[in-house]
Write a protein that binds this DNA or RNA. Structure first.
Lengths: 245, 245
DNA sequence: GAGTGGTCTAGACCACACG
DNA sequence: GTGTGGTCTAGACCACTCA
């Protein structure tokens, strides 16, 4: 059985990356050069590069070049009291966040259902990008009732974390409920914001935050960079850590 | 801004599938026919088909044809007492399982660590395929200590579920601990066994089963069909259901 | 053997980055 | 403008399925 040519090229490039012949962050030879090196057509070289880009081993930038990219794997812990900042800090990773957009909309059905609102009730729709050591790892789209959280747009922009924003509304503690998770390919906009390949998988996590009384206070859909993050669930020994920021 | 041709083709095909013009399971026109219909080269048509195949909307079979494939989304619930069969049955889905392979090996480091064994201790390595309504949804690679579970190969082959097999060793109840989850592309062998596209993402879930005394009894790495399954975690209101088969 | 999808080369043109 | 990657057509040949 003969291996396909593009797979041979992919494996040879992967070996060179693993062996450090192409250092992390270094620029690869251009496509015509690789074509000559492997005695292949551009199609085969591009297919090999594409495969490695999806795996996260290469990062392709139009007009600039192709670069070695070996992103770290982050373990994101999900429990009843998951907090973004604390979660990363416990691993020695510097958390960060950037506001991307905020608007007030009529609640779509799934949001209304999650928050226990009438369909069409007005909610904040906030999009933020989460960073780990400066690298994008998540896009969080979150929804909050405008009645319960007036001026959330301003407050969230000032607050360092969602936990802190909640505190300004008198919510000192909250729990995570109804976490669901699935995988799909990134759409082009997501891929750009996460700095990953268009065809790379992302992990989509939806959850509802509830107060200690069980009342829902927030609903969010977060898109995570697929091969930079793994999740961990400790259903058994949830340490019940106190609220944190 | 002009859309790329292959994306236009992809979207038109997706629309036709959604509209039922191409019925579920029906065969698509051949590539040359689609080239003519869309006035495009074969490259563009194949790219569009490839994108839809990764999304799970089409299933491509070499030498036979391309078919409409609209797999159902299964919600798999993960909690302390997750059981494969019960999980699916609660959704009205018929669970199934097929033995693929069994061997006894020296425990790799991660397995030894999870099970609390000395490195190199002998363990069962069992590979099974999980089915939902007859469709493959998972490949479960599980490890058990040979001392604690003699003859597990035979017993597991007879037992309808892992829960039942455990029972024959006097384990009436067990809990799930240390669940981690990440996404990556399927490798060719996995893709074939799961009946999905080679480039499709899979979800990899690793977990340790522990007895009520906290002692680890089994460790497994399960590869789930990426867009046929979503996971749900109920960290808050785990109903603590009794043991089930 | 006929028909299907899988891979490959060759060559052209387009879009983006950067000096 | 020059060089990079992105897309496209054209045409060839290979591998697999099935009558």
């Amino acid at each position: 059985m003969q291996r396909d040519h593009w797979q041979t090229i992919r494996d040879r490039l992967a070996d060179d990356i693993a062996a450090g012949i192409f250092a992390a962050g270094a620029q690869l030879p251009t496509e015509p050069e690789l074509c000559a090196r492997f005695s292949a057509g551009r199609h085969s070289v591009r297919r090999a590069i594409g495969a490695l880009a999806i795996e996260g081993k290469l990062r392709v930038e139009q007009g600039r070049g192709t670069f070695v990219d070996t992103p770290p794997l982050i373990t994101y812990r999900i429990g009843r009291r998951t907090r973004f900042r604390q979660n990363l800090q416990e691993q020695g990773i510097k958390p960060g966040g950037e506001h991307i957009s905020h608007e007030i909309i009529a609640a779509p059905p799934r949001v209304a259902a999650a928050l226990g609102l009438d369909q069409g009730a007005r909610v904040h729709r906030t999009l933020r990008r989460g960073l780990a050591d400066g690298l994008p790892i998540s896009l969080a789209l979150s929804f909050h009732c405008t009645q319960r959280f007036p001026d959330l747009g301003d407050i969230r922009a000032q607050a360092e974390s969602l936990t802190e924003a909640y505190r300004r509304y008198g919510i000192d503690d909250y729990l995570r409920k109804d976490t669901t998770l699935f995988s799909r390919r990134a759409d082009p906009g997501e891929a750009k914001l996460l700095g990953q390949h268009r065809d790379h998988p992302v992990l989509v996590v939806t959850k509802t935050d509830v107060g200690l009384d069980g009342q829902p206070i927030g609903y969010s859909e977060t898109v995570w960079a697929g091969d930079r993050v793994q999740f961990r669930f400790d259903a058994l020994d949830d340490p019940d850590r106190g609220p944190a920021g």
